[in-house]
Computed example of a mutant assay.
Amino acid sequence: MTQVNSASGSGLYGNGSDEQIKGGIDVSDATQLENNFITLMVAQIQNQDPTKPVDSTEFLNQFAAMSQVRSLENMASLSKNNLVLLDNLQTLTAAGLVDQEVKVATDKVELGDGTVRGQVNLEFASGKTVLRLTDSNGVKTDIQLGSQVAGPVPFDLDAGKLGLEPGRYSIEVVTDSGEYPGVEVAGRVSKVRVSAEGPVLDVEGVGSVPFYNITEFGQSQLAGLF
């Protein structure tokens, strides 16, 4: 979530530096600036030339501009607090997923001794649906899923049955409808790491996955997902 804070911070404040952000939204400084402005405005009114008084509209416009600046700074402060809260909530949620089973959107799978289960989400019916695995050497293995109607299409990947070496593979789906649907893989979360990109989950059958790639999680077992 740290990256989300940085990107949002840059958009709100025009700075990447945390110290600059803090300085830019210091409400106590804004209050002091407003008080100084009022003091100077009163002094200007008291010492103006009685024969050529300053238009009161100018004072009101100046004060309105100052109030607007303070309101914007307060909004910036509130936005930063909300981002910090969201960061904390996301981290706590990710930590609570350890030993739970989740589904994640991915284009990579890790095949080992067990079976990797997942699903393809079709928006359109397909007369020919192919699940394609590509190893690190570029060798492709096509798994025929046959004709499918629109909706989720479950699949199982077993390296032994497929005659594949254990390892990491790219995964994609090719259909005769021209659609390139997304792939979701289900697995147990073994641990959660906090990184510059936010919480990163280690999911069995997938590997390291950013928190925002999770498409489903809960108390149900994998068998209940499909």
Rank of each mutant, 00 (worst) to 15 (best):
M1H: 14
T2F: 07
Q3V: 04
V4C: 02
V4D: 12
N5L: 15
A7V: 12
G9K: 12
S10W: 05
S10D: 04
Y13V: 11
G14Y: 01
G14R: 01
G16Y: 10
S17F: 03
S17G: 15
D18Q: 14
E19Y: 11
Q20P: 01
Q20K: 06
I21D: 00
I21S: 14
G24Q: 11
S28A: 10
D29E: 12
D29S: 12
A30P: 08
T31I: 15
T31H: 10
Q32Y: 09
L33T: 03
E34V: 13
E34S: 07
N35W: 01
N36W: 05
I38W: 07
T39Q: 06
L40N: 14
A43T: 09
A43N: 11
Q44C: 05
Q44Y: 05
I45H: 03
N47G: 13
N47V: 06
Q48E: 15
D49C: 03
T51P: 07
S56C: 02
T57H: 14
F59E: 01
L60R: 14
F63K: 11
A64S: 14
S67G: 08
V69Q: 00
V69L: 06
N74Y: 11
S79A: 14
N81Y: 02
N82R: 06
N82F: 04
L83P: 13
D87W: 07
D87T: 15
N88F: 07
L89I: 13
Q90W: 02
Q90N: 15
Q90D: 02
A94W: 03
L97W: 14
A105V: 07
A105I: 08
G112L: 03
G112D: 12
G114N: 12
T115M: 04
T115Y: 05
V116W: 03
Q119L: 05
V120L: 07
N121R: 13
L122F: 13
L122C: 07
K128G: 05
K128L: 06
T129R: 00
L131Y: 01
R132A: 04
L133T: 14
D135C: 05
K140M: 05
K140H: 05
T141E: 07
I143R: 10
V149F: 13
A150Q: 14
G151M: 10
G151V: 13
V153C: 09
V153L: 01
F155P: 13
D156T: 08
A159F: 04
L162S: 07
G163E: 09
G163K: 14
E165D: 03
R168P: 07
E172P: 11
V173Q: 00
T175P: 13
G178K: 06
Y180N: 09
A186L: 02
G187Q: 01
S190M: 09
V192I: 10
V192T: 04
V192Y: 02
E197W: 01
E197I: 02
G198I: 03
G198T: 04
P199V: 00
P199E: 01
V200N: 13
V200L: 05
V200P: 14
D202R: 15
V203K: 15
V203E: 08
E204I: 10
G205E: 08
S208L: 10
V209Y: 04
P210K: 09
F211P: 12
Y212C: 02
N213G: 07
N213K: 04
T215S: 13
F217P: 06
F217L: 05
G218V: 08
Q219C: 01
Q219M: 12
A223M: 10
L225N: 08
F226V: 11
